[in-house]
């Protein structure tokens, strides 16, 4: 029997396209975030809250939203007159770099401050696929249980920011916030944690201040 040593990262093809996306964003100094959460954690609701505020601040942005079959998320964002590009992933449970590259072909990135990728609701697969983003953001929520960080450590490890959403429901659910945050920190010592509620507005300003800093840093580097 003959043997050939190969030693190649299986995601190298995806990572190559992600590097091309990253290079074209770097050219325009556009910051890109990749929002990842389980279904129903509040990605679209979060965008419905921060989108108009980003507009008020004069930040130019586009939302690339992924959905398996429907255009419901895109319609919700479009109703608020937010700039949105829809990707239907079909059977795929995540957005990969090629899908983002194709979506961005229709977007004029000149002068664009921010690209927001709203990934397919899933805590496993999207964490694996680099789409050319500057940072991944994990959105967790109080209704889905405080053990999600330890059950899905790759996402926490890969993310620069963890948002714990739906804090307005804390009094109705058995969610141990300290346990959750402690586990997030055990997995990733440098991750920032922001607790938010799209209903009460808690934490939204903290997020806006975080993202504005990131955009500013990208502009000067």
């Amino acid at each position: 029997m003959a043997f050939k040593v190969i030693k190649e990262d299986i995601l190298s093809e995806n990572d190559g396209v992600a590097s091309e996306v990253r290079a074209s964003l770097a050219q325009e100094k556009t910051f890109m975030i990749n929002l990842i959460s389980s279904p129903g954690a509040g990605k679209t609701s979060f965008l419905e809250v921060i989108g108009p505020k980003l507009k008020e601040e004069g930040i130019s942005f586009v939302i690339v939203t992924g959905d398996c079959f429907t255009s419901r998320d895109a319609e919700r964002l479009d109703a608020l007159d937010l700039p949105v590009v829809q990707i239907n992933t079909g059977n795929a449970c995540h957005i990969d770099a090629q899908l983002v590259a194709s979506a961005l072909e229709d977007v004029d990135l000149e002068g664009m401050d921010l690209v927001i990728v709203e990934n397919v609701g899933n805590l496993v697969c999207p964490a694996e696929f680099d789409v050319g983003e500057d940072v991944k953001i994990a959105i967790l929520s109080t209704t889905e249980g405080d053990d999600k960080p330890i059950k899905y450590p790759l996402l926490i490890l890969e993310s620069a920011l963890a948002i714990i959403n739906k804090t307005d429901l804390l009094e109705y659910v058995d969610y141990d916030m300290d346990f959750s945050v402690e586990n997030i920190r055990k997995i990733n010592q440098t991750i920032k944690v922001i607790k938010t509620s799209c209903k009460t507005g808690e934490g939204i300003d903290a997020f806006l201040s975080w993202i504005k800093d990131k955009i500013k840093i990208k502009k000067i580097t």
Partner: peptide, 11 residues
Amino acid sequence: GGEFTLKGIEW
């Protein structure tokens, strides 16, 4: 860890 690598092939 998080590696995912094709190490080689036998034929």
